[in-house]
Amino acid sequence: MNNNRMMRWMKAKLTLSFVFSLMVFIIFLITVVITGVLFFLANFFGLLDENLTQGGIVLPIIVLIACIIIGTFISGFASRRMVKSVREFIEAIRRLAGGDFSTRLYLKNPPEYRILSENFNRMAEELGGIEILRTDFVNNFSHEFKTPIVSIKGFAEILKYDDLSKEERDEYLDIVIEESARLAALASNVLELSKIETQTILTDKQKVNVGEQIRQCVLLLTHKMEQKQLSLDPELHDYFASGNKELLNQVWLNLLDNAIKFTPENGTISIEMKRTAEALQILFRDNGKGIDPEAVPRIFDKFYQADTSHSTKGNGLGLTIVQRIVNLHGGTIVCESERGPAAGTTFIVTLPSET
């Protein structure tokens, strides 16, 4: 065990500069030894002229030329192994630049090469993830835009028929209006998400009464709750947070609207506020059927909808916007959920507290 520990310690100490210095020394040493052995053998077998060995200039020149030739040969041979790692790195970069995000490097020594491999592999993994997200975004965006457009086009063509009853015509017009509103909401959400994704500094910060904001959001969405005959169990307080009032308002509206969508009729939505010396927590909880455990980590992805049947209205951007706004405020948001009847879902927003 001590030997293994010693080997690991020695590998850790073999830095790139030390390895290069060691290689130069070894090449020099081997060159001198080989040159000395060759001249010893040549002298032993009488291959050297006595005049050369006694001369003051010719012999050193011969020795120098021999050292250069032998040193060059040994350096060329030794550099092949050293350059091999560099070539592997160049080839990996070439493949990565070509779009092969599965490319990985496994250089072990010296430590600088190992660190280089780890960072390269992490970069390749991140780029691969970004590419997957980009592809998903394009596919989902196209689908979300195409569906209402196809629906509007289809019902607009039907409305051209003269034999439609007034009830049918009104029904189809309502569908066209509803799908148009869905397109408008999607466009607004995409623009809002684009704006906050490029925003790195929170502007228009002020002291915001979070409890009062949530009360106003409840009033705005009262009609939706009444349509499903939902009960509200609020535990609100006049707690304050520092932030952008309009952006924070979007967070509460989105989370409450999300809870209304996924709470069954006659269900209950609870809102709870907690405060510590450093943080303010706001919990939105519904008693819907919950989310599959494998879907929870993706719940904040763009256009991702845990309800694959698309039976609930939405475009999968609301929670993405919420997470980005919360992050801009230096806070966090987590989702806790289990799949099952009345299992429910809880979103917990944590913000820096403001007294």
Rank of each mutant, 00 (worst) to 15 (best):
H223N: 14
T203Y: 01
D204Y: 03
I299E: 06
E294Y: 13
P234I: 07
F303H: 15
L256D: 12
D292L: 15
L220F: 01
L236M: 08
K274T: 01
F300N: 12
V210T: 07
L253T: 13
Q305G: 13
Q281M: 10
L219N: 08
T263M: 11
E226F: 00
K245R: 14
K205L: 12
E212C: 00
K261F: 05
G290E: 04
Q206W: 04
V296C: 08
E278P: 00
T312D: 09
Q281R: 09
L248N: 05
R215M: 11
T222M: 07
T312C: 06
E235C: 04
Q229K: 13
K207T: 14
D238M: 05
L202Q: 10
N254P: 08
K205I: 13
A306Y: 15
E226H: 01
I260G: 11
Q213N: 08
Q216M: 08
L247V: 00
P297D: 03
I260Q: 07
I269T: 05
T312S: 07
S270R: 11
V210M: 14
A295K: 13
L256K: 05
D233P: 00
A279V: 09
S270C: 05
F240G: 00
V208T: 12
I282S: 04
D233H: 02
Y304K: 11
L219Q: 11
K224F: 05
V218P: 04
L219F: 06
N287K: 08
K207G: 03
H310G: 05
L202D: 09
S242Q: 14
N287H: 06
Q250R: 06
K207C: 04
R215I: 04
A277T: 14
K224C: 02
K205W: 01
E272G: 02
H310W: 04
I201Y: 06
E235P: 00
Q227N: 05
G243Y: 11
N254M: 09
I201M: 04
L255P: 10
Q305M: 15
L283G: 01
E294W: 12
G211D: 00
G290I: 05
K274I: 01
Q213E: 04
T276R: 07
K224S: 07
A279E: 10
I201H: 03
E246F: 08
I201T: 15
L280V: 08
I201P: 01
S231R: 04
I282M: 12
C217T: 13
Q206M: 10
F284R: 03
L232I: 13
S242A: 08
I299C: 10
R215D: 07
L219E: 12
Q229Y: 05
H223P: 00
D286V: 06
S311R: 12
L230S: 00
A259E: 10
A295M: 06
I291N: 11
N209G: 02
L253W: 09
K245N: 15
M273Y: 02
F262S: 08
R215V: 07
I260W: 06
E226A: 06
E212Y: 06
S311Y: 07
H237G: 00
S311T: 12
L255Y: 11
E265D: 14
L253M: 14
K245M: 14
F262R: 03
H223A: 09
F240Q: 06
Q206C: 06
I271F: 09
F300P: 15
L230H: 03
K302A: 15
V210A: 15
I282P: 03
I260S: 10
I282Q: 07
Q213A: 05
I201G: 01
L283A: 09
H237C: 03
F240A: 00
L220V: 03
G267D: 06
T276D: 12
V210E: 08
I299Q: 12
